[in-house]
Design a protein around this nucleic acid. Structure first.
Length: 593
RNA sequence: GGUGAUGUAGCUCAGCUGGUUAGAGCACAGAACUCAUAAUUCUGGGGUCACUGGUUCAAGUCCAGUCAUCACCA
């Protein structure tokens, strides 16, 4: 038990301003969960963390749109996330959020460590100031005439008419406040910048050039190119907003806040610290963050690559041995298996056009495992992929129901029918029996490597291939025929098939945790394959927050084929999956747009 | 505009460092079987590997350019 690895599964933090759709799930949350569940079965020490990003501008914008407070909007979506993730079976050890005392503290600690280590500098820049509102306005609150095309309602960051992007809203002609249409003026303001060029020289460049052959090619090339060709420039990490966000922990600057992009990624660290605290073992997080043998894997979408492969590593390097008495640095990412995007029936997913599948709705009409299965089968691992309801129904019916679910069902039914539900005796094994069981056992090696390498689509295909292999074996041995003349032969074949199915139950479990648990019970096994999910309220000194945790108590699953003993009485089986009528496709398509 | 990725059968995708008639699943056609949610198994048809040019004895696989899609950056 000593050679078990510590694996930190870091998952993208959703903005709490919109519901989660299939693209979000297949892009980062689901692959992270599959990865975490695989490593739990392997017996490794997994810590899977994430949370809602409360301070992003989109949350503020949403609140204004709805005429609600930011807090109300945030609470509403955060709560929905918890429900959705519970329903989908995403097994976060901690899904928290960034509006906690703990996160504020860790973010401010990192800021100060960077400052003390000489990686921050102050700089005065000019920004748009609203005299009527008495504050500086972020670019997206500014409107004006586009200097390129003359469009009158260009936004501060981009012209929607000609798609020109502006470096500063000051480039607009006659810039005005979007909120009250008042005139704006340019004023000087001072901010903290992170010195990325210095950090690059200090170790970031060396790190990115180190051996990274296990990284996905597009992630690696993109990152190296960014550093080599484009070069790095200092970036502002504070801004002129107060009242919502994390105050800058420096005298005279308390009215400014930490920029969200700087602060949100710190959640990976602060959530691990919070988890340890919640467990009553405040130091426990260090196993994942300070032991150089621990692996940290970041599951994100492709739009987030530079933040996780350059800026976050730069921050981690820059804080040195923060939180360590004996000079331990914080671990940099081991891998960032960023996914591409998922489209919807050939078009980009769009919240405003209601073009997509929202998980909160989907879970009302569909079971989590078929959703997880389809999202894994078409996961955008190497290129953009497409969700189609026709594909969903087809794969559910032909692969889950017909190939795998029906295999389990027919075998369990035959054992009921011919042996009153008692597992028959296998007798001596033939060569073809051994070949089948060896193929399953080899699967634990091969499919394990695929899961570990984040090749989830291939893992699923390979597991399904084994299901076909069992179907072929069943066809050759035809226990339904043998039962009429030679009951022992029928029992023999059914026993072998049952053992093979018992293996597949584990091989499928990272992707199909709910139905594999049901199969686990139908095979007469005790306990649960995985631990359970809980939604808990945590109290801090001045605040409380709701979060999701994973409780591993009672989890018995392990990465090998459990032997089902002859003579065991099995319960009456029920189908694992529901066949879907093709009309589902039309019903679902009708909800779009 | 710059950078990167992607473009292979009707659909979803494999094809590592270039090498015999380009693979799998689904869909389609035919056959076998009947334990099972008409579910399984076997056989078969189907592709100018986006386009153009180049390197090579040999290219889907390398190089250049073009087009399309996506992301990031300016």
């Amino acid at each position: 038990m000593t050679n078990k690895e510590h694996i930190l599964v870091s998952v993208a933090w959703p903005y709490a301003n919109a519901d989660i759709h299939v693209g979000n799930v297949t892009g980062s949350y689901l692959p992270a969960d599959i990865y975490a569940r695989y490593h739990r079965l392997k017996g490794n020490h997994v810590l899977m963390v994430s949370g809602s990003d409360s301070h992003g501008t989109p949350v503020t914008v949403k609140a204004e749109e709805l005429g609600q407070t930011i807090q109300e909007v945030f609470d509403y979506y955060h709560d929905r996330f918890l429900r959705i993730f519970e329903g989908l079976g995403l097994s976060y050890d901690l899904f928290t959020h960034t509006n906690t005392e703990n996160h504020f503290q860790v973010a401010q600690d990192m800021f100060l460590a960077l400052l003390n280590n000489g990686f921050l500098y102050k700089k005065v820049t000019e920004q748009m100031y609203s005299p009527t509102a008495g504050k500086f306005l972020p670019d997206r609150y500014i409107e004006g005439i586009c200097p390129v095309c003359g469009y009158e309602r260009a936004r501060g960051d981009q012209c929607d008419n000609c798609n020109t992007l502006f470096e500063s809203a000051a480039q607009l002609i006659n810039p005005r406040s979007k909120t009250d249409d008042s005139e704006l003026e340019l004023r000087e303001t001072e901010h903290f910048f992170i010195d990325l060029p210095k950090l690059a020289k200090t170790g970031l460049e060396r790190w990115i050039q180190n051996e990274k052959e296990h990284w996905r090619p597009h992630v690696l090339k993109f990152t190296r190119n960014w550093i080599m060709d484009e070069g790095l420039i200092g970036r502002a990490i504070t801004r002129d907003i107060s009242g919502w966000g994390i105050p800058v922990p420096v005298k005279e600057y308390e009215h400014k806040t930490l920029y969200v992009w700087f602060e949100a990624v710190i959640g990976y660290l602060s959530a691990a610290i919070e988890w340890a605290h919640n467990q009553g073992q405040p130091e426990a997080w260090k196993k994942w963050w300070q032991d150089p043998d621990a692996r940290s894997v970041y599951f994100i979408g492709k739009d987030n690559i530079p933040f996780h492969t350059i800026i976050w590593p730069a921050q981690l390097l820059g804080v040195g041995s923060l939180y360590s008495d004996d000079g331990h640095a914080l671990n940099l990412p081991y891998d960032v298996p960023a996914n591409e995007f998922m489209n919807m029936e050939g078009r980009k997913i769009s919240g405003s056009m209601n073009w997509g599948v929202w998980i909160v709705d989907a879970l009302e009409r569909h079971d989590p495992d078929p959703l997880r299965y389809y999202l894994t089968a078409v996961m955008p691992e190497t290129r953009d992929s497409d969700w189609s309801w026709d594909g969903y129904v087809t794969r559910n019916n032909t692969e889950l129901v017909a190939n795998w679910g029906n295999l389990a069902n027919r075998v369990l039914n035959m054992i009921q029918k011919y042996f009153d539900g008692v597992v028959p005796n296998p007798g001596p094994l033939t060569d073809s029996d051994k070949a089948l069981l060896e193929a399953i056992d080899d699967g634990f090696v091969k499919i394990g490597e695929l899961y570990d390498g984040c090749k989830f689509r291939a893992a699923l295909q390979e597991t399904m291939r084994l299901s076909t292999l069992i179907n072929q074996y069943l066809d050759e041995t035809s226990p339904w025929k043998a039962a009429k003349t030679d009951l022992a032969a029928a029992g023999h074949a059914l026993n072998i098939t049952l053992q093979a199915i018992s293996g597949l139950k584990i091989l499928f479990a990272p992707v199909l945790p709910f139905t594999c648990q049901r199969l686990h019970e139908m095979l007469g096994e005790e306990g649960r394959i995985f631990g359970g999910q809980e939604i808990v309220t945590y109290e801090e000194k001045t605040r409380s927050h709701r979060a999701m945790t994973y409780n591993p108590t009672g989890a018995v699953g392990s990465w090998s084929r459990p032997e089902i003993p002859a003579g065991r009485q099995l319960p009456k089986p029920k189908p694992l999956f529901k066949k879907l009528d093709p009309s589902v496709v039309e019903e679902e398509l009708a909800r779009l747009g």
